[in-house]
């Protein structure tokens, strides 16, 4: 496996791989997103308690799932970047964090909009929404730290350490917030957490979870390609990818 993986530590090789994968991911993301949302919005039956407002879960739940998933992915990349000193992995932190933050923002906004007709307030201190908000803060911290250094390598390493510290803290934060919520409010309506969901509603939900995974992956790939080009912009391969041919005269000067 190492022999297979090793070439991709080089940015050039992994850039080519990502470029080959990107159209497939982008197309399948758009197609699954359209199918699942049209299915969820128009064809799934209305909920007998919540009416049609429950249809927001077709974006809220996948966005919430992948906001967590992206954080775990970012932490894995951070571990790889710190342990094996692979630069592509450290750029992946900067590529994943904004996408994860966007997913978190979507989950928060849709949660608030769903809460208005259901709870009567835009913001209820519900356990899941609160931990989602804290997750957003964690993303913001990682991003701010990444770009706070003059030396980009130091920034990437610092952000990697913070991402790992954050991922250790994430379950603790999650359970403490959940416990805090039961302490202060008793059992609120367990949001979206019904044990049995009708199959007619479940299938579009599963499809939309898949669709958001593909959307997240597509955005991450796009951003990671940019990060690679940005960090390798002095290399001939990156200049060639950007449509600039390294001039012959200069290369002769350099070889001298």
């Amino acid at each position: 496996m190492w022999r297979w993986l090793h070439p991709y530590a080089k940015a050039e090789a992994s850039y080519r791989l990502l470029s080959r994968l990107l159209p497939w991911f982008a197309c399948s993301a758009v197609v699954t997103l359209l199918i699942s949302l049209v299915w969820g919005l128009a064809f799934a039956p209305a909920d007998y308690q919540q009416g049609d407002s429950y249809r927001i879960i077709y974006i809220h739940v996948p966005a919430a799932i992948w906001s967590m998933g992206a954080y775990f992915g970012m932490a894995i990349m951070a571990l790889i970047a710190l342990v094996w000193q692979i630069r592509t992995a450290s750029w992946a932190i900067a590529a994943i964090a904004p996408v994860g933050a966007a997913m978190t923002a979507i989950a928060l906004l849709t949660g608030a909009i769903w809460g208005k007709p259901m709870w009567g307030t835009w913001w209820e201190w519900d356990a899941r929404l609160t931990s989602e908000l804290i997750l957003f803060f964690l993303y913001v911290g990682v991003l701010a730290l990444y770009f706070a250094f003059d030396d980009q390598k130091a920034g990437a390493k610092a952000a990697a350490i913070l991402a790992i510290v954050g991922v250790i803290n994430l379950p603790i934060i999650h359970f403490s917030v959940e416990w805090w919520n039961t302490l202060h409010q008793g059992a609120t309506i367990t949001k979206f957490g019904r044990p049995s969901i009708a199959n007619d509603m479940l299938w579009p939900l599963l499809l939309s979870i898949l669709a958001f995974a593909l959307v997240t992956a597509t955005l991450i790939i796009m951003r990671l390609r940019n990060e690679m080009l940005f960090n390798e912009i002095h290399r001939p391969w990156a200049q060639a990818e950007l449509g600039v041919n390294p001039p012959v005269a200069v290369s002769q000067q350099e070889t001298r």
């Binding site: 911290g141 706070a148 934060i173 403490s176």
Partner: peptide
């Protein structure tokens, strides 16, 4: 410690970790 704008950044990073 090595970052440019330390102060506010420090609180930004730490406050979420102090929540539990």
């Amino acid at each position: 410690a090595g970052a440019q704008r330390g102060g506010a950044l420090l609180s930004l990073i730490l406050i979420p970790l102090f929540i539990p």
